[in-house]
Simulated scan of single mutants.
Amino acid sequence: MSVIELEGVEQRFHARGTPDGYLTALKDATFTLHSDPPQIVSLVGQSGSGKSTIARNILGLQKPTAGLIKYDGKDIFKLSRAENDNYRRNVQPVFQDPYSIFNPFYRVDRVLWKAVKKFNLTRDRAKGLAMIEESLNAVSLDPANVLGRYPHQLSGGQRQRIMLARIHMLRPEFVIADEPVSMLDAQIRKTFLDILLDFRRDHGMTTLFITHDLSTVYYLGGDVMVINKGSIVERGAVTSVMHEPSHPYTRLLLDSIPPPDPDQRWTNRIEVDDSGDQTPATAPQEPVV
């Protein structure tokens, strides 16, 4: 079993005009992801709450100002070259924007072939092609319709699923998915989420799913952490947090979801207390007459 541990992670950025000369994006982030049993953990919060900062820290793209991020007990920023290569293979990202993932000058095949070569999956081209086609089929893509094409010739959903096909080939222990469905339509979004659930069930992959959308959190199930202004303010099973939230900010997020009834309308504004304890104003939802 492999484990990713965050211990008191803090991230500060220099910022002019602030009292201390810096902005704190992340405060004392402490949690654990484990690969056995595989899990889906959602990290939910509004834009600017620190979600993507956590993703960059875990992926090693940004070293935290304070605290530790450990993989199997070792600081990820002090791994040997071989250990770092192993970490890179076993902790794979899916980013938000399917339009900026690919170099527009190359066919999309290049992303898949580079994974084959970089991680030494095979040296036989026929076997490599078979692996690529198998992984494309696993994410509901027809190889004949996507291989050989340029990024602009594919939809955003197809591009995101190609990144999932890359993950399928590598079989990592952990997937760090940073707002991966925010730019996809509803049907493709469901397909994407179902693939993540399949990855957990069939290949034992643990996913940290970062989002602002509570509906996708509820669909995925598992556990959830709620982050506000850089601090994780609530955590627990999705069902318990969604139905019995204990923190005012979590209740605010839930109250911001419109009811699935066209006859129901918000009649008042929701007020946010910027001091940290955020509570919604009473917002009765009355039928429109």
Rank of each mutant, 00 (worst) to 15 (best):
T216C: 07
R88D: 06
T216L: 05
K78H: 15
D274P: 15
S246T: 14
V175Q: 02
L170Q: 02
L26M: 10
K229G: 00
I227S: 10
T191Q: 13
R88L: 14
T216S: 15
D255P: 03
R16Y: 14
F102W: 06
N57H: 04
Q39T: 06
H243G: 05
P180A: 08
A25W: 05
A126K: 08
G48P: 06
I58G: 04
R12T: 12
K114T: 15
E10G: 14
R125H: 09
T65Q: 01
D261T: 05
L154V: 04
G21P: 06
A82I: 12
G45H: 03
P104W: 05
H212S: 03
V108I: 13
A281T: 15
Q39L: 07
F31S: 07
D255F: 03
P258A: 12
Q62F: 00
I40E: 00
F31I: 10
T53I: 06
V224I: 15
Q153V: 01
E5F: 06
P258Y: 08
R12G: 07
L214R: 03
L68M: 14
G276W: 14
V288L: 15
I132C: 08
A15G: 08
T207E: 01
R189K: 10
G17Y: 09
V91K: 08
P284Y: 06
P262D: 07
H243E: 13
R265G: 02
L136Y: 09
S182D: 09
N268G: 03
E134M: 06
E134D: 14
K117Y: 08
P37H: 04
S275N: 12
A186N: 04
K74Y: 02
T239D: 14
T206A: 03
L197D: 13
G48A: 14
I132R: 08
N120V: 06
E83C: 07
V139G: 06
E173G: 10
E179N: 06
T207G: 03
T18M: 11
